[in-house]
């Protein structure tokens, strides 16, 4: 790691295992729960827009 940059500070989006692995290695890390948006078929997507 470049001394000038210093220790990494990480924001992990999504997969919890990556966060766990970084914490286990002593890396400062923040976990944000995130999953890619789910895509349904067009008709279902349109209905969800109207009904949810």
């Amino acid at each position: 790691m470049n001394e000038a940059v210093g220790k990494p500070r990480v924001v992990n989006l999504g997969i919890q295992t990556f966060y766990d692995a970084l914490v286990w290695q002593g890396v400062e890390c923040v976990q944000i729960e995130w999953t890619p948006p789910v895509r349904q078929d067009e008709e279902t997507e349109a209905l969800l827009d109207q009904y949810l």
């Binding site: 349904q40 078929d41 008709e43 279902t44 209905l47 969800l48 109207q50 009904y51």
Partner: peptide, 14 residues
């Protein structure tokens, strides 16, 4: 669930 949502919309139109 996809089928149910479509049937729901048909039964309860806006």
């Amino acid at each position: 669930f996809q089928q149910a949502m479509k049937a729901f919309a048909a039964a309860y139109p806006q």
